[in-house]
């Protein structure tokens, strides 16, 4: 009877160990899959490959990602700002020169008159 009990206990232990191993293997399998996905994306990033937008438009942040502003346009518009400022400063410079030249002329005129 003792031997039979021991055999039964050993069977239980073997069954439980096997189930443990199976669960561990399944978990490992899923973890490896996740790592593979992560590695593929990292490699694409390093190779500077543009990510397919359809990929992340399925994600929870699709709304934010689809409303991304055109940063290049913003940077390019800075040139326009400087061009505009160049014109403004030129204009101001011109106006002030004009005023000074008028004052010069007027000074000369009064000298002549006096």
């Amino acid at each position: 009877a003792l031997e039979a009990s021991m055999t039964e206990i050993k069977e239980y232990i073997a069954r439980l160990s096997l189930e443990c191993t199976n669960w561990d293997q399944l978990l490992l399998h899923h973890q490896k899959e996740a790592e593979k996905i992560s590695r593929t994306l990292e490699e694409a990033k390093i190779a500077d490959i543009e990510l397919d937008s359809t990929l992340y438009l399925q994600s929870s942040q699709s709304e934010i990602l689809s409303t991304k502003p055109d940063y290049q346009k913003i940077l390019d518009s800075q040139n326009e700002v400087f061009n505009c400022m160049e014109m403004v400063i030129d204009e101001l410079q011109g106006s002030i020169r004009l005023l000074y030249s008028f004052m010069e002329d007027t000074t000369q005129f009064f000298k002549k008159v006096s």
């Binding site: 502003p69 940063y71 913003i74 800075q78 700002v81 505009c84 400022m85 403004v88 400063i89 204009e91 101001l92 106006s95 002030i96 004009l98 005023l99």
Partner: peptide, 23 residues
């Protein structure tokens, strides 16, 4: 980024208004 853009716009417009004075 938007705030910075707006600040730059405001400065540019202020300078542009200055040219109106002598005109």
């Amino acid at each position: 980024v938007l705030e910075l853009q707006q600040q730059i716009q405001a400065r540019k417009q202020a300078w542009q208004m200055l040219t109106q004075v002598p005109k």
